[in-house]
Design a protein around this nucleic acid. Structure first.
Length: 852
RNA sequence: GCCCGGGUAGGCAAACUGGCAAAGCCCGCGUGCUUAAAACACGCUGCUCGCAAGAGCGUUGCGGGUUCGAAUCCCGCCCCGGGCACCA
């Protein structure tokens, strides 16, 4: 008998799949298209090609490939493509360091990824391969940008950005670490610059309602997106500053507490600050505060510790509900980019306002009473003898230590007194609305997507700036606007593209006059927001995709990837899909109907990183144990949505199991005769029947594990059990035609079931026994007659403790089961001299006798 | 602080609607094969008694509760991981 030689087997099958283009699928209308089969789009998140693939990639593609194989054999026509998210910062940073063009390193990396994916035997349709940095791809990224631009879904506006004064560049948020530049360590500043945005906020509501169209997404991913979108219902209420003739609308989720507003606060970035302070004598103090706030890093401002800071503005606004003049402040706990950048402060019912009021000794007026502690706050406060806070708490007649944020009966609120705060909410909003002082409003935390980057290695924005015509779109027939080559990749306050003068200086497509190209490039998330559509028609040079192809394949039936993309990539893609459908380019509202988020693999409990030196290179393991063992191990480590700790012993364990299956095949081929035909399950008995039943149990178990959220680890263990059972009974089965047939069936079944994880070995073993290609065979179905047996083990308990086990016929009556139980050896011992007070019978399972 | 996950033998884990806790894999120990080792095959692997068959006991982070019966349901905590964090 030979040995299990994975590399030989893997090379052989990979050559077959490659030369026969096994995993390629045609589009509708193309030769070979089979419209009798339902489609399934199985997609793993495309990799960013940097260096070589790591274990996270291996896990993602091993999981995705198992799903693709399973669906194919269930009769689906599966599209399973691959590409590369090839623009991006790491390649560019490397270029800045080495002077080598980012294309060179990216291309080398793509080749390495491609080589390894093939060595893993992933069943990909290579005819649809793409790279986002390829002009044939980004031509259409630009084309799509122009469609958004035409509809005002892409626009240009002034925006605060993170600026590194040393590197003279704008930084992406991810490049700012604790308020400092990731590369040089300088303190990052905030600057206002003209930037490009996608109007994702106009899809906020639909991004929320779209969750109802999804079949299966991890709940926490949906929650994270919900929180990110951050929809709040409330009211917009206008506070007027009569002296300056200025209106200040504010957003509040608690219009019921309007009578409790005792002051008014603006964000330091609020555009009217200087005008408000002018002529009050507070100008200098205000200016100093605003400057300090601008200098403070976002982190410092967000830090929840320390007292609230702020400065009085020396003016008042009128509370529209009661005409009261309340003082205005500027404070950095108010954010310019949420709501209107101003708020009414209700210290009695908002903790932050309460903190501010306490620090600045401002009145705290309760307007909602806490039904649980009616009027006993003062007593509670005096009970504490802790620190020097008593003095502050004592100020203000009805102050509390904390804001009460719940509901309750209204007080101090004029004619709304006595109403429940929830009723008051509605009543006050209606009243404001009829008086023109406010209206019901919805506010979102989500902001528009800033897509421009002052970077080289990205997709150029196809816009030209003309002195006469303004911002002009590059006509479709002039696309792509190709990324020109440069020598110096270092950013100098604007994109390195700005230095390429013969590229920048161009003609206005509208008037023919001199014009300058937009030098910013796009965020790489734009590239990856539509790649799943390009796969469907990857070589179309008339359009980004054909409608027929998109209508046939979309949506993605199963998307697989890491949770790190839970918000940005998935939200952006959902936005693109909805916007493109609205434009008539698509007919789906949600791109990814099912999402599977894989867990992270660790080593010795720690996240893998180059600096820790605990990385695992898939290539090393594939070289040592073969792709099948490495992939199977990853799927066997534990539930794939959870993480797992990588151990070399574990890989060896799955290798041993695969080798054991291979040896079983060798022996079965040598010792049994083919062609006996499938045994009659009714005729089989003893070990033969038991093994056959085990095979069908494994089919049933593996199938259910696939359907139940990809519980691959238990599916694989079922195959291990089947193989173990075959080893246990094999010597007694060889030699009879029935025994031979059952051994062949059991071995082929194990091969068939392990195929989605170990495709090479699965093919090899199946072919050796059945003479057939396993991927062309339908996924096996269990024979119900073999899943059930006519007897079962009846567990007998006394007082909930197991005392005996009896074989009983299926369908035995409850009375009979009770009789059997009472008569059993183990039970009688425990019934001695005691009285049975209760009998519990669960048919088919157990009997419990309660005694005293 | 808030919102999600999770805590089960030495490690990873299983247990589908409350019904024999611990399948499978790893580690460890033993037996066979072997001159020997590796590989392989078989067995053991919660505790106690027993040569053994077997018997008894215990057990799912901690403390309560519901139930004939709880890893599973309820209440109160502790620990680990992740996300969000002045969002008016």
């Amino acid at each position: 008998m030979g040995r299990y030689e994975p590399h030989q087997i893997e090379r052989r099958w990979q050559a077959v799949w490659e030369s026969e283009r096994t995993w390629e699928v045609p589009n509708p209308g193309e030769p070979g298209f089979d419209d009798s089969k339902p489609k399934a789009y199985v997609l793993e998140m495309l990799p960013y090609p940097s260096g070589e693939p790591h274990v996270g990639h291996l896990k993602c593609y091993a999981v995705g490939d198992a799903i693709a194989h399973f669906r194919r054999r269930q009769g689906f026509q599966v599209i399973h493509p691959m590409g590369y998210d090839a623009f991006g910062l790491p390649a560019e940073n490397n270029a800045i360091k080495t002077g080598e063009h980012p294309r060179v390193a990216t291309q080398a990396s793509i080749e390495e990824f491609r080589r390894q994916f093939r060595s893993w035997g992933v069943s990909l349709d290579w005819s649809r391969e793409l790279a986002t940095c390829d002009p044939d791809y980004y031509r259409w990224t630009q084309w799509l940008f122009l469609r958004f631009f035409e509809r005002d879904l892409a626009y240009r506006a002034d925006a605060p950005v993170q600026w590194c004064p040393t590197d003279q560049t704008v930084l992406a948020n991810e490049q700012v670490v604790d308020g400092h530049c990731e590369r040089c360590g300088s303190l990052v500043e905030s600057r206002r610059l003209e930037q490009w945005f996608f109007r994702i906020t106009s899809y906020a509501d639909r991004l929320l309602s779209g969750f109802d169209l999804l079949e299966s997404w991890p709940e926490h991913v949906v929650t994270m997106q919900r929180n990110w979108i951050g929809r709040s219902e409330g009211a917009e209420v206008t506070f007027r500053c009569a002296e300056l003739d200025l209106d200040f609308p504010v957003f509040t989720t608690r219009p019921d507490t309007l009578f409790g507003a005792t002051f008014f606060v603006l964000a330091p970035e609020h555009p009217e600050i200087e005008r408000i302070a002018a002529g009050t004598g507070h100008e200098q103090e205000v200016r100093d505060y605003v400057d300090a706030a601008a200098r403070a890093s976002t982190e410092d401002r967000a830090a929840d510790e320390g007292p609230k800071t702020g400065v009085a503005l020396g003016r008042t606004v009128t509370n529209p509900v009661n005409g009261e003049q309340i003082p205005m402040f500027v404070a950095d706990y108010v954010l310019m980019d949420y709501g209107t950048g101003a708020l009414m402060a209700v210290p009695a019912h908002d903790q932050r306002d309460h903190d501010f009021a306490t620090t600045f000794d401002l009145p705290i007026r309760q307007v909602v009473t806490n039904p649980d502690t009616p009027g006993r706050e003062a007593e509670e406060a005096s009970g504490s003898d802790s620190d020097g806070r008593e003095a502050e708490e004592a100020s203000g007649s009805d102050s509390q230590a904390e804001a009460y944020t719940g509901d309750g009966p209204m007080t101090n609120s004029d004619r709304f007194d006595g109403l429940d705060s929830r009723e008051a909410y509605t009543a006050i909003v209606e009243w404001l609305q009829s008086d023109g002082k406010g209206r019901a409003a919805v506010n979102f935390r989500l902001r528009d997507w800033l897509l421009s980057r002052q970077r080289y290695w990205g997709c150029p924005i196809p816009i030209v700036h003309c002195e006469r015509c303004g911002t002009v779109a590059v006509p479709d027939d002039q696309l792509p606007v190709e990324l020109p080559d440069v020598d110096d990749f270092a950013p100098k306050g604007q994109s390195p593209l700005a230095a390429v003068s013969d590229w920048v200086n161009t003609e206005c497509p509208s008037c023919g006059g001199p014009a300058r190209r937009e030098t910013d490039t796009m965020d790489t998330f734009v590239d990856s927001s539509w790649y799943y559509l390009r796969y469907l028609d990857a070589h179309n040079d008339q359009a980004p995709w054909g409608r027929e192809a998109a209508d046939h394949w979309m949506p993605v039936d199963q998307y697989i990837g890491g949770v790190e993309h839970a918000i940005l990539h998935l939200l952006y893609s959902r936005f693109f899909c909805k916007a493109l459908s609205d434009m008539g380019h698509l007919d789906v509202q949600e791109p990814f109907i099912n999402l599977f988020a894989q867990g992270m693999i660790t080593r010795e409990g720690a996240k893998m990183s180059k600096s820790k030196g605990n990385t695992v290179s898939p290539a090393d393991y594939v070289a040592r144990y073969g792709a099948d063992a490495t992939r199977t191990y990853i799927c066997f480590m534990g539930p794939p949505e959870r993480g797992g700790d990588w151990t070399d012993e574990g890989v060896e364990g799955t290798f041993r199991f695969l080798a054991r299956l291979w040896r079983l095949k060798e022996e079965v081929v040598a010792r049994t005769a083919a062609g006996a035909g499938p045994p009659d399950p009714v005729a089989a008995d003893g070990d033969a029947r038991a093994l056959l039943a085990k095979a069908h149990w494994a089919i049933d178990k593996a199938t259910r594990d696939f359907q139940r959220g990809f519980q691959f680890h238990t599916a694989i263990s079922a195959v291990m059990e089947l193989v173990n059972e075959a080893y246990a009974v094999k010597d007694g089965l060889y030699g009879t035609s029935e025994g031979d047939a059952v051994m062949r069936i059991a071995t082929a079944t194990a091969a068939s079931l392990i195929f989605p994880f170990a495709p090479h070995l699965g093919s090899e073993v199946y072919e050796a026994i059945e003479g057939d290609r396993v991927w062309e065979r339908p996924w096996p179905e269990p024979d119900p007659a073999l899943l059930e047996s006519d007897t079962f083990a009846l567990v007998v308990q006394v007082n909930g403790k197991r005392r005996d086990q009896i074989q009983a016929e299926v369908g035995t009556s409850e009375e009979e089961l009770l009789r059997l139980a009472r008569e059993s050896e183990g039970v009688r011992r425990h019934l001695d001299g005691k009285q049975v007070v209760k009998e519990v019978v669960v048919p088919g399972k157990l009997v419990n006798l309660v005694v005293r």
